[in-house]
Design a protein around this nucleic acid. Structure first.
Length: 790
DNA sequence: TGCGGTGAATTTTTT
DNA sequence: ATTCACCGCA
C-alpha cells in the first residue's frame, strides 16, 4: 500500500532490538528515584493522564521515566510512542535522558520530536493529498514575508497600511487556530479591507505553486489530511499506542486538534504542563487546552507534581503570592523540603542606569563571596521583560568588564550572510527554488537591478517557467544588455553546474559549498566590503561550511536547518546570563535578578491594552516564571525613571510588587541616596494600604523628582489603589480612553482630532500634519486650555 | 545603482 | 535613542 507500511516495518525491526534489550534489563530501578506523585504519573500508563507539573518539580524526569517505563514493561515498542515537544532543545533533552535511563542511545524512536519535525515526516509521506510533492521546501519567516510582499504588490494593496509582516502574522494566527481560507470566520476575514481570506487563499496558492509550506502549514496540512482521509488517520491512530506531550499549556488550537484526533483510538495520552507557566498566548497558545483536559478526556487521571526541588521556601512563597492573584487556575501549591534561605530582595532605584550599576556591583560581590559562599558568574542571570532592557546591562557590564552572555537574540541561521549562502545552496539542490533565486540574483551586485529582475519575472511567467529558466529565455532572446547579461549568463550556468555536482554522489558537498561561495563571488563580496561587521560575516560563512560536515549532502543539511535553527556556540569562561523572561522558561539559576518591575514595562502596557485582563494575567505568569527560575537568591528591582524611546519617563513600581507577600521579602535600600531611609516614606505618603508601608526603597522613589513630577501630572492614577479597583482599570475598554472626536496631542504632529479608532490605533486628523494613523500610546488627551495658538 | 536624508515605529519567539 | 524602510538625488 502506501510507504507507511514499509517504513514502519523497518522502523519496527530496528526498534524491536532496543525494546528487547531494554526488557532484559533489571526491573525498574528508576522507579525508586521518584517521589510518590511522580511515580503515580509514571505508572499510570493506560488512559488519559494530565500531569500538572509546577516549576522545578521534576517534570522532565517524570516524563522521560514514563517513556522508559513504557518501553521497559513492553507496553509499547519505541516506534509506537509519539512524544512531542515544542523546541528542539526539549526534544534533544528528552532523547538523551530516556537513553540514559535505559542505558543506551535511543535511535529507534522516530516519533520523538517537535510538533513541526513530526509533521514534516507525516507530510512528506502524504504530501500529494494536499497537492504538494513530497520534496516540498519549508519556508521560514523571512521567505514568508518576502512572498507576502510580492502578493501585496500584485494585489495592489497599500503596503503602508498593511505591511507584509503584519499580513503574514495575521495569516499565521489563522493557521494557529486551524483555519484554512474557507474556514476563517467572517468577523475575522474582515481584516484588511475585507480581502482577508482572498489574500490568504492567494497566498496558499502561491505556496502550492512553489511546492512550499510555511511553519503553520506543516501542522495545518497534516490536520487537513487527517480530517479528510479517514484511512490515513486510522493508520496513525492505531500506530501511536502512547502519546506524550510536553508543555501542553503552550499548544495552539491546531496542535490541540491534531493531538485529539490521534489520541482518539487508544486514548493513551499523557499531557504535561503547568497552566501557571503559560506565557505564549500572544502567539496562539491556548491555556484553555490544559484547563479543558478533563472534559476532553473524561476519566482522565490528574496528577499534581508539587514538590519543588529547585528553590528555597521564601522564593516559592513569593512566587505563589504573585500567581495567587490570577483567576481560573487549576491550582497547585508548591512546597519544598528545604527550610533555609534568603528572602526575596526588593530594591528601588533612581533610574535605569543606576539599576544596572547596582546589579553589576551585586553580581561582583556575589562572585567574590562577600555575604555567602561565592557564586560563579554562570550561576547568575538577569531576566528582563523586553529585549531593549538588555542594553543598559550590556553597556554597564562592558564598562566594568563583567563577563556576560546574551541568550536569545538573532540566531546563527537567521543572519544575513548565512541566509544568502543558504539560498545559493538551495539553488544548487533545486534550481527551481524561485525564492532563493530572487534572494541572490543580485547579491553580490551583478548589475541586475529592478528592471532586469522584472524582465526575468515576465519571461518566467509568460512561459510558465521557473525564474532560472526565465533568465535563460531572456538571455536567448538577447533582451538584456551590457554587464547584466554577461553576469546573468554566468550565474545561470553556475547554477546548472552546481546542481549537477549536488546530484552526483561522489562529489564532496563541503567542497561544493566552498566552490559555490567562491564562484558566486559571495565570499569576495564580503572581502571587499569594509564595514566593521564584514570580517565577522566571513567568519560565520566559514562556520557554516564547517557545520556541513555533520551531514551527508547539501539536501540533508537544508532539511535540517529549516526546522532546527539552533545556535549553540558557547565560548569558554563563566559569564552572567542576560535574557528575556520568555527565554528563561525551563531554565534555572542559583541567583536571579528581575529588573524593571514598573507598571507599563512589566506588566507591559501593550499586553494590558490589547488583551485586557487576560493580558495582565499572562504578564503575571511571566512574573511567576521569573521568580521560580531562582534557586537560592532572587532580587526584584525597579527604577523610578527610565529613558524610553529617548524620552525620560517616570513609572510606578509594578503592581506585581504589591503582590509579593511581605513576610518573604527583604527590602534593600541603598544608603545615602535622595535622602531616603528605611520606612521613612510611610509618613511622607501616608499610604492607606498597609502593605505599602514595607515597600521597597519607597523613600527614594517618593522623594524623587520623578515621583513628584508624576504625582503632579497624573492625579487619576494614585499609587496605592486597592487591587480590586485597579483590575477595573486594566480592562481594555477602560484603558483606550479615546473616543472619536477627542482632541489629542502628539509630540511630533501637534494637535488633532480623533476620526476613527481601531484597536489601539487611532486615525487622527492633525491640524497641521494632516491625517495620520497613530498608536494611542503616542498621543495624549488635549484639553482645549492646552492648545496655544501661535 | 547607491548613498544619505527623512519619517515612523518600537514586547515577548519557535518552528 | 535607534533602527529601519523608503525616497530622491547624483
Amino acid at each position: 500500500m502506501s510507504s507507511f507500511d514499509e517504513d514502519d516495518a523497518l522502523e519496527a525491526a530496528a526498534s524491536m532490538g532496543l525494546a528487547a534489550r531494554a526488557m532484559a534489563a533489571r526491573p525498574a530501578p528508576y522507579l525508586e528515584d521518584l517521589n510518590p506523585a511522580q511515580r503515580e504519573a509514571v505508572e499510570a500508563l493506560d488512559g488519559p493522564v494530565l500531569m500538572l507539573a509546577g516549576a522545578g518539580t521534576g517534570k522532565t524526569k517524570a516524563l522521560t521515566t514514563r517513556i522508559a517505563h513504557l518501553l521497559n514493561t513492553g507496553n509499547a515498542r519505541p516506534n509506537e510512542i509519539l512524544a512531542v515537544t515544542f523546541t528542539n532543545k526539549a526534544a534533544r533533552e528528552m532523547r538523551n535522558r530516556v537513553g540514559r535511563l535505559l542505558g543506551q542511545t535511543v535511535e529507534g524512536m522516530p516519533w520523538m520530536g517537535t510538533f513541526h519535525a513530526i509533521c514534516v515526516k507525516l507530510l512528506r509521506r502524504h504530501a500529494e493529498l494536499v497537492g504538494l510533492k513530497s520534496n516540498f521546501t519549508i519556508l521560514d519567516t523571512d521567505d514568508q514575508v518576502r512572498l507576502m510582499k510580492q502578493l501585496i504588490v500584485a494585489e495592489n494593496i497599500d503596503e503602508k497600511r498593511w505591511p507584509a509582516r503584519q499580513l503574514a502574522g495575521i495569516i499565521d494566527g489563522w493557521k494557529n487556530r486551524a483555519w484554512t481560507p474557507d474556514k476563517v470566520p467572517a468577523a475575522e476575514a474582515g481584516a484588511f479591507n475585507h480581502r482577508g481570506t482572498e489574500i490568504y487563499d492567494y497566498y496558499q496558492q502561491r505556496l502550492k505553486a512553489l511546492n512550499a509550506v510555511d511553519f503553520g502549514d506543516l501542522l495545518l496540512h497534516v490536520l487537513t489530511i487527517f480530517q479528510a482521509h479517514d484511512d490515513v488517520l486510522a493508520q496513525y491512530q492505531r500506530w501511536f499506542r502512547y502519546i506524550l506531550v510536553d508543555e501542553y499549556q503552550d499548544t495552539n488550537v491546531a496542535q490541540y486538534l491534531w493531538l485529539r484526533l490521534l489520541a482518539r483510538t487508544h486514548r493513551n495520552i499523557c499531557c504535561v504542563g503547568d497552566d501557571d507557566q503559560s506565557i505564549y498566548g500572544w502567539r496562539g497558545a491556548e491555556v484553555g487546552n490544559i484547563l479543558r483536559f478533563e472534559k476532553d478526556f473524561p476519566g482522565a487521571k490528574v496528577v499534581r507534581l508539587e514538590q519543588n526541588y529547585r528553590s528555597t521556601p521564601h522564593i516559592l512563597a513569593a512566587a505563589s503570592g504573585v500567581i495567587d492573584a490570577n483567576k481560573g487556575r487549576l491550582g497547585k501549591t508548591l512546597w519544598t523540603a528545604v527550610d533555609q534561605g534568603e528572602k526575596v530582595r526588593l530594591i528601588g532605584h533612581w533610574d535605569g542606569e543606576e539599576e544596572a550599576r547596582w546589579i553589576g556591583e551585586n553580581v561582583e560581590d556575589l562572585a567574590r563571596g562577600r555575604a555567602m559562599a561565592p557564586f560563579s558568574h554562570d550561576d547568575m542571570a538577569i531576566l528582563v521583560r523586553a529585549s531593549h532592557q538588555m542594553r543598559a546591562f550590556e553597556d554597564r557590564f562592558l564598562t566594568i568588564g563583567l563577563p556576560y552572555r546574551v541568550i536569545g537574540g538573532p540566531r546563527f541561521y537567521e543572519r544575513l550572510e548565512i541566509r544568502d549562502a543558504m539560498a545559493y545552496f538551495r539553488l544548487a539542490v533545486s534550481p527551481d527554488d524561485d525564492l532563493a533565486f530572487e534572494r541572490v540574483v543580485n547579491t553580490p551586485r551583478r548589475g541586475l537591478g529592478d528592471k532586469a529582475q522584472q524582465k526575468i519575472q515576465i519571461a518566467a511567467r509568460t512561459n510558465g517557467a521557473t525564474l532560472v529558466d526565465g533568465a535563460r529565455i531572456l538571455l536567448a532572446a538577447k533582451d538584456l544588455g551590457g554587464r547584466g547579461a554577461a553576469e546573468l549568463r554566468l550565474l545561470v550556468d553556475n547554477i546548472a553546474r552546481w546542481h549537477d555536482s549536488a546530484r552526483r554522489d561522489g562529489h564532496s558537498h563541503i567542497e561544493l559549498a566552498e566552490q559555490i561561495l567562491e564562484e558566486s563571488g559571495y565570499t569576495a563580496f564580503w572581502q571587499t566590503e569594509k564595514t566593521p561587521e564584514a570580517p565577522g560575516r566571513l567568519e560565520n560563512l566559514k562556520e557554516l561550511v564547517k557545520a556541513l560536515e555533520q551531514f551527508e549532502n547539501l539536501q540533508g543539511f537544508l532539511e535540517h536547518v529549516a526546522l532546527i535553527m539552533d545556535n549553540e556556540s558557547e565560548e569558554a569562561g563563566a559569564k552572567v546570563s542576560i535574557m528575556t523572561l520568555h527565554a528563561a522558561k525551563g531554565l534555572e539559576f542559583p541567583v536571579i535578578f528581575l529588573p524593571g518591575w514598573e507598571d507599563g514595562l512589566f506588566p507591559s502596557q501593550r499586553a494590558m491594552d490589547e488583551q485586557g485582563l487576560s493580558g495582565l494575567e499572562e504578564e503575571r505568569r511571566l512574573a511567576y516564571v521569573g521568580i521560580t527560575r531562582a534557586e537560592r537568591l532572587c532580587t526584584v528591582s525597579f527604577a523610578a525613571n527610565r529613558r524610553v524611546y529617548g524620552q525620560w519617563q517616570s513609572a510606578l513600581p509594578s503592581r506585581f510588587i504589591d503582590e509579593l507577600p511581605e513576610t518573604h521579602v527583604e527590602v534593600l535600600t541603598p544608603p545615602g541616596l535622595y535622602g531616603g531611609g528605611y520606612g521613612s516614606a510611610g509618613a511622607v505618603r501616608g499610604a492607606p494600604d498597609s502593605n505599602l508601608n514595607d515597600r521597597a526603597a519607597r523613600a527614594d522613589v517618593y522623594n524623587s523628582p520623578g515621583w513628584r513630577r508624576l504625582q503632579s501630572r497624573s492625579q487619576n492614577r494614585p499609587m496605592s489603589q486597592p487591587k480590586e479597583s485597579r483590575n477595573v482599570v486594566i480592562d481594555a475598554e477602560a484603558v483606550s480612553s479615546f473616543a472619536v472626536g477627542d482632541r489629542v496631542f502628539h509630540s511630533k504632529f501637534g494637535y488633532g482630532a480623533v476620526t476613527a479608532i481601531e484597536g489601539d490605533k487611532l486615525d487622527i486628523a492633525f491640524d497641521k500634519a494632516g491625517a495620520k494613523k497613530v498608536v494611542s500610546r503616542f498621543v495624549s488627551e488635549a484639553s482645549r486650555a492646552d492648545e496655544v495658538p501661535f
